[in-house]
């Protein structure tokens, strides 16, 4: 069967869904994201990227791949490599045998990426579905159309070094045992997300949002790094493939599907409520961008107050969500 590329909002949930679908599973991107309990929030001030802290609205890399395969009674096989030669040989071998392969890569070294989006982020995911001459045929979930990438460039992107170095990681699913997500698989996934968001850890979930808010409240409006800090939060929330509002909209889409599969009507109401919370995240982003652009005066406490509100609505939301399942 030839590979059907499908556009997605987020690289890992898109890759997971596209690969599993290729193997006969019925799965959408939101389902892959939700069933893997991909939604989260993490503020990691001690991990710095270009001098700015790591802020994530999702779980760690690979968590979505692993979690999305599980309800289908299967798993992904992961392979890492010590050398570029071994990594390329194995990829070529799998492609020659007709396998469709997922890869973890750097974004910076992919030439087909838009210039302004090429930062040193090493946990991008994409699908390779063939090779023609020196070019790999690539289904990059965040691109609408299939792409091509020369061998040397793809090798470079697969073996980029630094934080989250992919080490040539490739993966492919073992043939799924079931082709549909069963209702029993949905409840634990939702419970896990509710628990993660309410975790008693200061840098995770709702408490992580509050900690970030307190950090922002302390920014000095006259300090040259204050505006980039606030802009960075918005980038992590909106720009880097989250489907809008830091994955809240994707998760709302998952909750609708979850309602249809389980028949729990309350999940539909939860979805509505999360869409509203997502809209409020978009308002935070808008207010922040106006300050970055200089249309409004830089006012860190105002952004902090908005984030505190988000923390409060999400705390109430995830408590209610946990109770529905």
């Amino acid at each position: 069967m030839s590979y059907q590329h499908q556009h997605a909002a987020h690289c890992e949930s898109g890759t997971a869904a596209n690969l599993l679908r290729h193997h006969g599973a019925t799965i959408t991107e939101p389902m892959a994201f939700g069933i893997a309990a991909g939604l989260s929030f993490a503020y990691l001030p001690f991990v710095r990227i270009n001098g700015l802290p790591l802020i994530a609205y999702r779980m760690l890399p690979k968590a979505i791949l692993k979690g999305a395969a599980k309800p289908f009674g299967t798993q992904f096989r992961f392979e890492k490599f010590r050398s570029v030669e071994d990594g390329q040989r194995r990829l070529d071998e799998l492609l020659a045998s007709g396998q469709i392969v997922g890869l973890q890569t750097s974004v910076f070294w992919l030439p087909y990426f838009p210039e302004s989006m090429r930062f040193h982020f090493n946990a991008h995911n994409l699908v390779v579905y063939g090779k023609e001459g020196d070019d790999y045929l690539i289904g990059d979930p965040v691109a609408e159309e299939p792409q091509r990438c020369a061998t040397a460039d793809l090798n470079r992107a697969r073996f980029a070094k630094g934080a989250l170095a992919p080490q040539g990681l490739l993966y492919y699913p073992i043939t799924p045992a079931y082709d549909n997500v069963k209702p029993e698989a949905i409840r634990p996934a939702i419970r896990t997300t509710a628990r993660n968001m309410l975790a008693p850890v200061p840098i995770i979930g709702v408490r992580g949002i509050r900690m970030l808010a307190r950090r922002i409240a302390k920014l000095d409006p006259k300090d040259a790094m204050s505006s980039p800090f606030i802009g960075h939060v918005v980038r992590m929330q909106e720009e880097i493939g989250t489907g809008g509002a830091g994955f809240r909209f994707i998760y709302a889409a998952f909750l609708q599907e979850a309602r249809d599969i389980t028949g729990i009507a309350a999940l539909g109401e939860c979805s509505e409520r999360l869409m509203e919370i997502g809209d409020a995240w978009r308002d935070v982003a808008l207010a922040a961008a106006r300050m970055v652009k200089g249309r409004d005066a830089l006012d860190p406490p105002a952004i902090a107050a908005l984030l505190m509100q988000q923390a409060a609505s999400e705390e109430a939301f995830f408590r209610a969500l946990g109770k529905t399942v």
């Binding site: 556009h7 302004s116 802009g231 960075h232 918005v234 980038r235 720009e239 909209f249 961008a289």
Partner: peptide, 29 residues
């Protein structure tokens, strides 16, 4: 790809050619 609700209230995926907010913060970076 973005997720948004259609007229019937269903969340669907739709392409977007960008939001000014994203352009502002990417340009800043």
């Amino acid at each position: 790809a973005m997720y948004a609700r259609d007229e019937s209230g269903r969340m669907v995926m739709t392409p977007s050619n960008g939001w000014e907010v994203e352009e502002i913060v990417t340009t800043q970076a």
